[in-house]
Design a protein around this nucleic acid. Structure first.
Lengths: 191, 191
DNA sequence: GGTGTGAGTGAGTGCATACTCACACCTGCA
DNA sequence: TGCAGGTGTGAGTATGCACTCACTCACACC
């Protein structure tokens, strides 16, 4: 039931397809975790499973690539927030905190990839290294760019982890005091 | 190669075996996540895989039971800490914070089960409900028993999530500033 | 229009693993 | 002593999924 005359396939470059595939992988992994089958990821990317394995020889390779782009997006969001705050004379740490809350709306997948990678980090050596690199980079940003003290940095990460977890467990859909309090974002200048 | 004369099997009650099995399941799930095969859990419990499935008809059932006892242990630890603090006139919230840090040493599995359940909660309806119940109960404890304000409760959970995550990614084994700062526990009366 | 190269796939294979079934053995009780 | 009922298992089955292979098709260049 294929109609080759009406839908002549147009080829992409492997690089472009690879990028699309990783983008799809971020979405699917974010939603279903590492357990997401490669068939589903391939479908989401609009390619065959066979070609998925041509582009990434193993599933861990694909997951690593997905985590890398998710981490980059995370870093970029905080980096931009800090830069803008500095330019406008605002507090960079505050801005980065607000960027965190905003991510949950704009790019939830990026946060979910974090949580899923944390469990991967407990099991797989390479995943652990990747997660550690991500933390190292963010910590550096928080201290150097935002000029946070150690205590401030720790608190920033703590609230960040809370946001990650609340996103993962869909706390926003729960109508209860705990869910409201733990997902609440402070108006201005917290702590 | 069995020696039935020297090792006559002694039967347990199903209830007792069930409890041992769940205990083993907590250990194995904590270490390897939901992906841990049932064969391995059965081996850890010293029973056959077939009997595992007699005691818990499906793997999700077993995981749910494991999460339930882990949650109970978690709750008990905080509850005791609060009670002791109140008895000795100390600050209950402080005591519960210290109990959190102590769990990472004494009963790490209980924290790891939490993280693994968070990803399960994103995928499975029943796991989500169980996690929500756990949060609700703890939140209640923090507010009512420790008398925390909403802001204090939020901060308590935030630092708790940080501890969970740092435990999951083995941050304690990393020799770097970020790891040291984010796993550091304050001496007395923080924030 | 022929040909070389890279994009892309249908149809598998093999293995891990959740779950089953027929059966063995122990123990209390009549 | 026999038997009923509960504990426990060896040896499967079935399914899902990571990964492979032989192959087709599009396009660029001559």
């Amino acid at each position: 039931m294929t109609s080759p005359a009406t839908t002549p396939r147009t080829l992409s470059t492997a690089e472009q397809r690879r990028a699309e595939l990783v983008e799809a992988a971020v979405r699917v992994f974010a939603e279903r975790g590492y357990a997401a089958p490669t068939t589903e990821i391939a479908k989401a990317a609009g390619i065959s499973q066979a070609y998925l394995f041509r582009l990434f020889p193993t599933k861990p390779d694909l997951f690593a690539a997905a985590y890398e782009v998710a981490s980059d997006r995370l870093y970029a969001a905080f980096s931009e927030a800090a830069a803008e705050a500095k330019a406008s004379g605002a507090d960079p740490l505050d801005a980065m905190g607000r960027a965190y809350s905003e991510l949950i709306r704009r790019d939830r997948d990026v946060l979910l990839m974090q949580i899923h990678s944390y469990v991967g980090a407990g099991i797989d050596e390479q995943a652990r290294a990747a997660v550690h690199r991500c933390f190292a980079r963010l910590y550096d940003l928080v201290k150097r760019e935002a000029g946070a003290s150690e205590q401030e940095a720790k608190q920033w990460f703590a609230y960040g982890m809370l946001i990650n977890v609340m996103a993962a467990i869909h706390a926003d859909e729960v109508d209860a005091e705990w869910a409201q309090v733990l997902t609440w974002e402070p108006e201005e200048g917290d702590c």
